[in-house]
Design a protein around this nucleic acid. Structure first.
Length: 829
DNA sequence: GCAAGGTC
């Protein structure tokens, strides 16, 4: 038997399909698919199935001085035991093995990991390596006909990176966390990729903070020819002879304004007409895909997760790629033909097919890893996808269309006119040839009309306006701009950049979108800049890349490179250890700043967001125990202190982060006061104790900001019904016959029609019914409608059944779901 | 409970 090992199950399945001409059988073992046909077996890994770590005696952060990690031994352990076990079991009785992992550096390392696992189980079987950059019949057959050897030097280059990242990341992370006494969930992390990324955000914020706005004025006028008006802007030539529109002096602006207004007409001085070609965009690599999806409103992580789903379902190619050049064996015409006749894309495909020769665009980067992202011939029905998935799928299809479409052509018309010595210019643009815009409607094709005029012609000047403006601070990085910037700096990879940004959110370093740094983030970057400059700069990656190339080319050894890196870090630790307290104080102060709301109304010290022993959050005074002032916070979510403050109490507003239920709580003191002042309106008898004890239902507002219908005999009777947090509650004259309670209307800000909530008991019962419905499997995050269906086919009907099931067994029954994933869901259930 | 890199 020959054992073929790929990087992922999806690749294993497709390779088995190609080599077996569709005749492979599939068996599932411990959650791993094993494809088998005539003398061959194929198994897919899940990326790295082993990882580097320190031995267990280095586990406890408090027992080990962080600098001891610099020279600590490093061990490789299985991170995906089930896959390792299945692989080794089949390796035992294999006659030979072929490594068919991805064709890039990380793929070579994953290949070496597989090599060692196979060798460990089988001393003799020859092990070879095949390389192909797209899983197509030709490439795969060609590769298997000409197998090669594993490139151990290239794999060791990857290992050097693993070791250096672990040592630097772990040692510095533990040092900062320990010096600030932040252990547990709230540790303070540092790393070769995350910290330079954070510095990008912090540096931008520093620019914004240091920005000093300047006043300037701009002047506009409408020009008129034959009763057609068009807009023109005033300009002048600055000292360097360059055209300028901004006037930096108010007197000058006023003078120009007066001249223009009194002129009444202007004489055309010059007319320039130019055509400009507008080339269709290059094929999608990961970064450009994220950017395009970003302009549709998808955050980077969401865009990747949707693309991964579309890939797993077989509708688009692998979404993690650096390549922007279609491989030679992609037949663009054939692919277009599969879209001809399609209800949505058919007309566009047909129009593109009219061209005799399709010439796809090419981007700058051509790599061997995977093809650029494009649709496959397997086209989904609209009903197979969610709305978001469809929008992303359409984007990928249309991008592919655009890359084989014609260029567009614009005509630019520029008119300059003189009004009593002052200049006005008008820039018109018109789309002459729509080209690729017909099939790719995501770019603006707005035109700006300027009529045909001739030199010497006199135009009326109407409606002169002067606008006072200010220079604006630089814009923050949005997620996709950040990812583009990371790519240009060479940090992170196509597969990890979006995760790095998510990590920064999780670690409390950034908030909001576009991301803004917290005080803690500024302190971490500051500390790193002062003591470990290398880890906060892109140079660390650049140096590492150079060393990795040297290892790959046999010029340096893995040990040379890691030893050198250890020495650099050793020296950094000499400085760090000396300044341990200073760094700890800086970090602690900034952590406090991120939790500070403002002055305590009782004693004037600071109010802080704190956590009780039971894990719930509240607002307490820094002067505790001398001052015992407290305010409650809502019970759902994690509090985040916002920039915005309350005019009345000078306290920062609080936002509660709770996934989809995230909401702004506002000033906690205002909320508490509102609750005090709120009138409790009686609406009827309490159904629990009304008859016996005369309990009445009241509309109540709590200090946490939540509102409810509760019994007047609380706490003796705790009957309650929830009410929405926002909006004015109106008690109407209409009554629910069943419960003898008034119907409620909620008037929300900005909404004309009130929300007719109805009788609060009926409303609550409906809500509970919906909850029960949702308690189906889809109530678990990560389970979509299709997966729920598959699970139910396998006999897992509800959350309870899933929780009780054997993960490995379920994984065997349900295609495309691993046992690990099921265990993850079980934990959530 | 640390990193970054694969993949789900």
């Amino acid at each position: 038997m020959e054992l073929i090992i790929t990087e992922k199950d999806n690749a294993a399945r497709r390779i088995a399909d190609i080599l077996s001409e569709g005749g492979a059988t599939t068996e599932r073992e411990a959650g791993v698919n094993v494809y088998e046909w005539g003398g061959r077996r194929c198994i897919g890994l899940s990326g790295h199935v082993v990882g580097v770590d320190f031995p267990s005696e280095y586990e406890d952060w408090r027992d080990v001085e962080p600098h001891e990690l610099v020279d600590a031994p490093i061990v490789k352990t299985a991170t995906r035991e089930n896959i390792v076990n299945v692989l080794q079991r089949y390796a035992e009785d294999a006659d030979s093995a072929v490594i068919a992992t991805d064709y890039d550096r990380e793929g070579e390392l994953i290949g070496k990991e597989a090599y060692e696992l196979v060798r460990d189980a089988n001393e003799d079987a020859p092990i070879q390596r095949v390389r192909f950059s797209s899983i197509t019949e030709n490439e795969v057959k060609e590769a298997f006909a000409n197998p090669d050897d594993l490139d151990f030097d290239l794999a060791e280059a990857g290992e050097a990176r693993q070791i250096i990242d672990l040592i630097w990341g772990a040692a510095l992370t533990r040092f900062l966390s320990l010096s600030a006494r932040q252990l547990g969930d709230d540790f303070i992390s540092v790393g070769r990729v995350q910290t330079p990324t954070l510095k990008l955000i912090v540096d931008k914020e520093r620019e914004i903070e240091a920005f000093d706005p300047e006043d300037y004025w701009e002047l506009f006028a409408d020009l008129e020819k034959d009763e057609t008006e068009f807009e023109a802007q005033y300009f002048y030539l600055d000292e360097d002879g360059n055209e300028a529109e901004r006037v930096w002096n108010e007197d000058d602006a006023n003078a120009a304004f007066e001249t223009l207004r009194e002129a009444g007409s202007a004489v055309v001085e010059s007319v320039r007409r130019r055509t400009r070609t507008d080339d269709p965009p290059a094929p999608f690599n990961t970064t450009q895909y994220i950017r395009a999806a970003g302009s549709l409103g998808f955050a980077a992580g969401r865009a990747m997760s949707i693309a991964e789903d579309l890939y797993t379902a077989g509708y688009i190619t692998y979404p993690r790629t650096d390549n922007t050049v279609y491989p030679e064996d992609l037949d663009e015409r054939e692919l277009l033909e599969t879209f001809a006749g399609h209800f949505e894309f058919g007309d566009d495909a047909a129009s593109l097919l009219e061209t005799d020769e399709l010439e796809p665009t090419e981007g700058e980067k051509e790599t061997t890893d995977h093809p650029p992202i494009h649709p496959t011939p397997d086209i989904p029905d609209k009903g197979d996808l969610s709305d978001d998935e469809w929008r992303v799928y359409e984007l990928v299809v249309r991008r592919f269309f655009a890359t084989v479409a014609d260029e567009a052509v614009w005509e630019h018309l520029r008119v300059v006119a003189d009004a009593d010595g002052e200049s006005l210019k008008a820039n018109g643009k018109r789309l002459l040839e729509t080209g690729y815009h017909d099939v790719y409607p995501y770019f603006s094709t707005d035109e700006n009309y300027v009529p045909d005029v001739e030199e010497g012609e006199e135009l009326d000047v109407l409606d002169v306006e002067m606008e006072a403006k200010q220079t604006q601070p630089p814009r923050r990085y949005g997620q996709s701009r950040l990812i583009e910037k990371m790519e240009s700096m060479g940090i992170g990879t196509k597969s990890t950049r979006h995760n790095t940004i998510e990590k920064l959110y999780e670690r409390g370093y950034i908030e909001s979108d576009p991301p803004q740094p917290t005080t803690l983030a500024k302190a971490v970057v500051e500390a790193a800049e002062e003591f470990a400059d290398l880890v906060v700069s892109e140079e660390m990656t650049a140096d590492l890349e150079a060393d990795m190339t040297a290892i790959a080319e046999g010029e340096k050894s893995l040990d040379d490179v890691t030893e050198e890196s250890r020495e650099v870090l050793e020296r950094i630790f000499e400085d760090l250890t000396e300044s341990r307290e200073e760094i700890g104080d800086l970090l602690q102060e900034s952590l406090k700043a991120d939790k500070t709301l403002g002055p305590c109304p009782d004693c004037g010290e600071s109010l802080l967001v704190r956590r009780s022993r039971h894990g719930s959050y509240f607002v307490g005074c820094d002067g505790y125990p001398d001052c015992t002032f407290t305010l409650p916070l809502p019970s759902t979510g994690e509090p985040l202190v916002l920039e915005e403050t309350c005019d009345e109490h000078d306290l920062h507003h609080v936002k509660m982060l709770a996934g989809r239920q995230t909401f702004v709580h506002g000033c906690p003191l205002c909320k508490a006061e509102e609750a005090e002042e709120a009138e409790e309106v009686a609406i009827g008898a309490c159904p629990e104790c009304g008859e016996e004890h005369g309990g009445e239902l009241l509309i109540k507002q709590l200090q946490t900001g939540s509102r409810l219908v509760g019994c007047s005999r609380y706490p003796d009777c705790d009957y309650s019904l929830p009410l929405p947090r926002r909006g004015e509650i109106e008690v109407t004259d209409e009554y629910c016959e069943e419960h003898d309670l008034p119907e409620l209307h909620i008037h929300q800000e900005g909404e004309e029609e009130p929300w007719e909530l109805g009788c609060p008991i009926c409303n609550f019962e409906e809500y509970q019914a919906r909850q029960r419905e949702r308690e189906g499997l889809q109530a678990i995050e990560g389970i979509g409608a299709k997966t729920e269906e598959k699970l139910q086919e396998a006999g897992i009907e509800d959350v309870e059944a899933l929780a009780d099931a054997d993960a490995d067994e379920v994984a065997e029954d349900v295609a495309g779901v691993s046992a690990d994933k099921i265990r993850e869901w079980q934990a959530k259930a």
